[in-house]
Nucleic acid binder design. Structure first.
Lengths: 199, 199
DNA sequence: AAGTGATTTAACCAAATGGTTGAGGCAAAG
DNA sequence: CTTTGCCTCAACCATTTGGTTAAATCACTT
């Protein structure tokens, strides 16, 4: 059986949790060690420093931040709207499992803008490419691709980023807010259809 | 002449700047003192502790976070879409002047959700109230008010929150991104019109 | 000019925090 | 059994950081 979790993995899991909750400067090495159920010295044994450990966690999370279905968008025999729907669905599904990911990535980059450059990631670039083709061939309206993507991605991410404040503003229970999130897909696709086709 | 800036005010200004840049746990009292051009002890003389100082800054910024035009939405003789336009314009204008405000508020609340409760603020509540009336009287389509507000507010905030990552994704210069922000108003109102009226 | 209360400063302190060390444990190889 | 190389730990260290203190200075009143 190779199913036992290595110490290294236990540390990474704990580090992810703590860094996502507290951010880099709010996180404590002791806290990570406690959570991993090991001695603090082991953190440094496996990952030299807090910076190094954080960088690993950040890179790992950054990859998750970009939906992995972009490749699938090319093969399938779908209309553009259907592809949008797939994109939104995949993104929302991932976010349900990683609700704290967006604010972690964005606030980290906010405080350290170079990090955006250090990792080569183009969020939604494939959708934009497809969109330009659709426009050229006259199948959808002429819409600013950047504005559109910003809105589409924002529609997925923002409800997670702003959850605490909107829970209160709308006066919703956690269950009700989850319901709102579940219905987000429909609203996003409705937006896309209204803007791109106009029906 | 009462135009001279008090020490208290100098501290507040410096504290706002540093807390907005670094967040609570990333900010250093020494850094704030340096920036205010005073001794570190004075911070504690005027504002007992880091927590107290932060709370003041946070409350102050939290008020800014909610557009102050909500009252104006009632008096004026405008269509609902025009009111939306006003709301978006006012919000975007404020954000241009305070581009770091959204991520500060949202990441702070993320790490300390009780703060959302400690301050009584309903972001966009007035729009929702008006929207319900419009729907009841059949002047706009039946649209989920929460979904709509989440999108509308997100359309204003998200471009500021995600600026670093989208600058890179879209490969835009700062000037080009500012241009994108300037055109945001039109796109947001276009969304509202498409969803609420369908034209 | 002397007194009074608010303001400012340098020096200091205790706790927290990231990081290190050296000794020991433990499993596989010889 | 002993060696070897990886793993684990308690104790320790240096620095940073929020916070304090006591003396000095300033502004204003009497």
């Amino acid at each position: 059986m190779e199913s036992e979790i290595t110490t290294e993995q236990k540390i990474m899991d704990a580090a992810e949790h703590v860094f996502l909750d507290e951010g880099f400067s709010g996180a404590r090495m002791q806290h990570i060690a406690d959570r991993a159920g090991i001695n603090k010295a082991m953190l440094h044994y496996y990952f030299r420093s807090k910076d190094k450990l954080f960088e690993l966690v950040f890179r790992h999370k950054m990859k998750q931040f970009v939906p992995q279905i972009e490749a699938a968008l090319n093969e399938a025999n779908m209309t553009f709207i259907e592809k949008i729907d797939r994109f939104v669905l995949a993104y929302l599904t991932m976010l349900q499992k990683n609700p704290r990911l967006p604010i972690f990535i964005l606030s980290t980059i906010h405080r350290n803008p170079e990090l955006a450059n250090s990792i080569d990631i183009k969020l939604g670039a494939e959708i934009i490419r497809l969109m330009e083709i659709e426009i050229k061939e006259g199948r959808i309206k002429k819409v600013d691709t950047h504005q559109f993507m910003l809105t589409l991605v924002g529609m997925c991410l923002f409800p997670f980023i702003a959850r605490p404040i909107f829970s209160k503003t709308f006066d919703l229970t956690p269950k009700q807010y989850d319901q709102l999130l579940a219905e987000r897909r429909v609203h996003a696709v409705q937006y896309a259809r209204a803007i791109l086709i106009g029906e």
